[in-house]
Simulated assay, not measured.
Amino acid sequence: MFWHLFYYRLKILITNLPLIFWTMVFPILLGLLFMAAFSNLDQANLLNQSAIGIVSEEDTSEFETMLNSLQTDEGELFTVSHLSKQEATTQLTNDKIIGYYEFDKADIQLFINQNHIEQTVLSEFLSQYLQIQDKVTVLLNAGVNPEEIHAQLVANEDFITESKERSFSQSNFYFFALLGMTILNGFIWGLGNTNDQQANQSANGIRICLSPRNKFVVSFANLLASFVLFYLQSLVVLGVFHFIYRVDFGNNWGWIFLLIAIGSLNALSFGTLMGNFSSKISFDQKITIGTTLTMAMSFLAGMMGTESIKYWISQNLPLLGKINLVNLISEGFYQLYYYQSLQPFYHNLLWLAGFTVVFFLSNVYFERRVSYDHL
């Protein structure tokens, strides 16, 4: 009986052309607009030599030496000038420098007023420098020979050379966010399932409630049919982005397929939960609420040119980024492409899987409690 229900639900979903358009064709067309808008974005954001400041009353020659080691084919990446706190603040406000480091005893702080690739390099450099500084301190306290420590630091140059093999692409970032939004739009499929299962929403729901079939079996068959079709549809979008739009997703294709699978199941469960939780409002109102939530999450994930907001959230409100489903999915693509270590991706995937389990169990709870006064 289960496979009979699954087969016929699949046939019904395949014939729902408006739904397929908005969850597959529309993202592909939107990606085409992205291609037109961002075709020269990476060339426009190539690293040029930029001016930065250092605010310090102590010797910073060691820090500057490491900073000057950051170079492009044209030469040093940054020109450094020593400034007072007031001068640095004024020049940063007037965009004469892109940022400045302030040394206060053992603490080093970076001040920026924008979040472009140059500022990201400054932030990453400071993070790496502080990590190296901590390691050196620990090794010296442990009695390690300073010459051996120096040899280890020189060996880090190999890492710099290898990291150049994958260049930063800002257009990729927007496509990752677009794919995250596309996957979460699968909530519409989950809403459609609940609409066809609830007796106060549709005639199909009345027939299902009057039938002798187990309601959980019907619900699971609908969910599985939606998942299979939506997952394949998401792979089509991925294929168009990669093979036609030439978006590079890296080489971790196994993890990419798993991320899309969990993201698709998450979106379907999220939509089903919305339908179960708000069973007394109309289907169109649910679509409006779900679309509004999806667009808000896409905005906070940086898809609308709001990557600076995404960066601010990651620095100041990291939990907000962890409960943003679009951000979790798009960040997964970002981590698989740019990060050498997959540890952050595993952590991100656990959050996404955790939400999926919570949504699924919540749906089971709501559907077991459904009852009607009369049909």
Rank of each mutant, 00 (worst) to 15 (best):
N324R: 07
I244D: 03
H116N: 15
S269Q: 08
F187V: 11
L224W: 04
I188Y: 08
V217H: 09
I132D: 08
G275S: 02
S234T: 12
N40M: 10
L29T: 05
P212T: 04
G31Y: 00
L139P: 03
L319F: 15
S219H: 12
H347S: 14
I160E: 12
K322F: 03
N145M: 06
A221F: 04
Y338C: 09
L300V: 00
L325S: 11
L77N: 04
A296W: 00
F283L: 11
R368W: 12
I313Y: 07
N214D: 14
Y372S: 04
A44Y: 11
I289M: 12
K96C: 00
D95Q: 15
G239S: 15
F78L: 01
V326G: 01
L319M: 11
Q86A: 14
L139F: 12
F283S: 10
G305T: 04
L29N: 03
Q119H: 06
T306W: 09
Y8E: 02
F175W: 09
F333A: 02
T93V: 08
R213H: 08
R369S: 09
G305I: 00
Q128N: 14
Q114A: 12
F257G: 07
V217Y: 00
Q170P: 07
S211I: 02
V237Q: 01
T291Y: 00
T137H: 08
T90R: 14
R166K: 14
D42G: 09
H150R: 12
Y174R: 03
V228W: 09
Y365T: 06
T120F: 02
E124K: 15
T79V: 11
V121A: 05
K215G: 04
L122I: 01
Q128F: 00
I97L: 08
F345S: 03
S61M: 02
V218K: 05
R207D: 03
M297S: 11
T60V: 14
F270A: 09
R9K: 13
V138E: 12
N193T: 11
S234F: 02
W255S: 11
I289R: 05
A225P: 06
A203L: 11
N48V: 06
K280A: 05
T182C: 12
D373Y: 10
T15Y: 07
D196F: 01
I112K: 12
I54K: 07
N193G: 13
L46I: 13
F333I: 07
Q315S: 12
E57I: 02
E147A: 14
I98E: 04
V370Y: 09
F38I: 06
N115S: 14
A51W: 01
F277I: 10
S39D: 10
L349A: 14
Q335N: 13
D73V: 05
F125V: 07
V236T: 13
F257C: 03
P27T: 08
T72N: 11
Q343A: 09
I208F: 01
I108W: 02
